[in-house]
């Protein structure tokens, strides 16, 4: 969460809000913020930290582990219409890649801003070329896009 918080300014500038959710109470969220998070990132976590004690939200979102009584590391990008555009769910020991999270947000925003006229190929990030899906592109992606473009 500290890593997500450290990129909050960038995410906010992209017009997005972050909501974190765990089964801990909001009282524990306060203690975690005061005793640890605020020492890892200046000002601590600036976004709302939600409490889902009984796992009600986690169950509906498919991230609640009934045996362990905790929620898996799930990440959902939701667009301004309330539609889920991206999901990533991981077991606890592996942390997220916040840079990739921001890249996906930028890519989905780009697609939305072009009303779906443009699609972002593998490894796209702002400034790189997009594809314009349509009859003229069928079988011709190899002419306009190179596999090396997927990697920095």
């Amino acid at each position: 969460m500290a890593a997500v918080a450290s990129k909050y300014k960038d995410i906010k500038e992209l017009g997005a809000e972050i909501l974190s959710v765990s089964v801990d109470s909001h009282f524990v969220h306060k203690m975690w913020q005061d005793n640890e998070l605020s020492k890892m990132v200046k000002g601590g976590v600036p976004f709302p930290m939600l409490s889902d004690g009984p796992g009600n939200i986690g169950k509906v979102y498919g991230v609640y582990d009934e045996n362990a009584g905790v929620e898996m590391r799930g990440r959902f990008i939701i667009d301004p219409d309330g539609v889920v555009q991206a999901i990533e769910i991981m077991t606890p020991p592996v942390g997220r890649n916040v840079v990739e999270m921001v890249r996906q947000l930028q890519a989905f925003q780009h697609v939305r801003n072009t009303n779906g006229a443009e699609a972002t190929p593998s490894g796209w990030r702002p400034g790189k070329g997009t594809l314009n899906p349509g009859p003229d592109l069928v079988g011709k992606v190899w002419e306009v896009w190179n596999v090396e473009n997927a990697f920095d």
Binding site: A16, I18, V21, H29, F76, I78, G82, F108
Partner: peptide, 24 residues
């Protein structure tokens, strides 16, 4: 109190995590 639908019109990144004070 936070309601998801109050954020309609904005992009939202919803992040679940295993617990406060866990290590990762």
């Amino acid at each position: 109190q936070v309601k998801l639908s109050d954020y309609l019109g904005k992009w939202v990144i919803l992040c679940f995590y295993p617990g406060d004070f866990t290590f990762v």
